[in-house]
Design a protein around this nucleic acid. Sequence first.
DNA 1: CTGTAGACCTGGAGGC
DNA 2: TGCCTCCAGGTCTACA
Length: 271
Amino acid sequence: MPELPEVETTRQGLLPLVDQTIKEIIIRNGSLRWPVNPNLNKILTDKSIRSISRRAKYLYINFEHGTLIIHLGMSGRMQIINGNAKAEKHDHVIFKFINNNKTLRYHDPRRFGSMHWVTTEINEHFLIKSLGPEPLSENFNAGYLYQKLRAKKQCIKNSLMDAHLVVGVGNIYASEALFLSNIRPQKQSLKLTKKDVNKLVNAIKFVLNAAIQKGGSTLNDFTSVDGKLGYFQQEHQVYGREGLPCYQCQNPIQKIILGQRSSFFCKICQK
DNA sequence: CTGTAGACCTGGAGGC
DNA sequence: TGCCTCCAGGTCTACA
C-alpha cells in the first residue's frame, strides 16, 4: 500500500492523536526490518505526542524527548481502533492512550517496515541523512533534477526511484509520472532534455498531489470504492494495465522489468 | 563513486 | 482440497 500519498494520508489520519498521552505500548512482534526497541513502553509511557510529521515515506511521531520514526515498508498500516477489540494477526505494535478509549495499531504482514526511537539530531539518523529532496517541495525542481540526471547512465525510472535523488516516488507513481511526461521508463537519464525534465517534475508533483487529494489511491482495490469520475478514481493510466488499451492511443500497454521491478508504459505515447 | 542483484517476509492468485 | 510457483506498494547491504 504505502507510497508517499498513502503515508501522508496516514499521517493526516493520525493527527487526532496529537496531545494524547501514551498509557502503554505492547510489542507483540518486534522483529520488523530492524528490531523494535524493547524499551519503547518504558520510554514512552506517560509521554504525550507533540506533533506528527513526515519525511519521505517515514512518519515522525514527535515527543518532547525524541521522535519515533516509523516506516510502513511494503505492507504496513497504522490503524486507530475504538475500544478494546483484540489484536489481530500481524498487529505487531499496539499503542494505548490515557483518557482515550482508542488504540493505535501498527499492522504489517511482511514486516518490511520499521520503528526507531531517536533522541539525537534526526537529520543525522542513518535512515534519514542521505535522503534527497521532498518531491512536493520547491527544492525539487527542473534545474535540480536536470543537474542530477545529466551524468546518470541508468534508466530514468530507476533514477526516479533512487531516494538519494528524490524521495517518495515509488514503483507505481514512477510509471505513472513517466507516462504523463511521454518519456519511456527505460530511457537513459542523461538523454533527457531540459524540456523532458521540466515535464517530468511537473508530472511527479501532479500525480502525488492528486493521489494525496484522493486520500491515497495506490491500489486497484481503491477504484472499486468509487470508480466513476476523475483521473485517479478511474484507474492508473499505465500501472498494472499490461495488454490493456492505452487511454490516449488505444495501443496495448507494455510491461518490462527494470531494476527488478515491474514497469509499465505505452510505446506509442512515450518516447 | 556508480549501478545492480540479493536479501528481508507473508499472503494471494493461478496452474496442475 | 493441496501443493507449487510467481508476484506484490520498499530500501538497505554487498559486491562488481
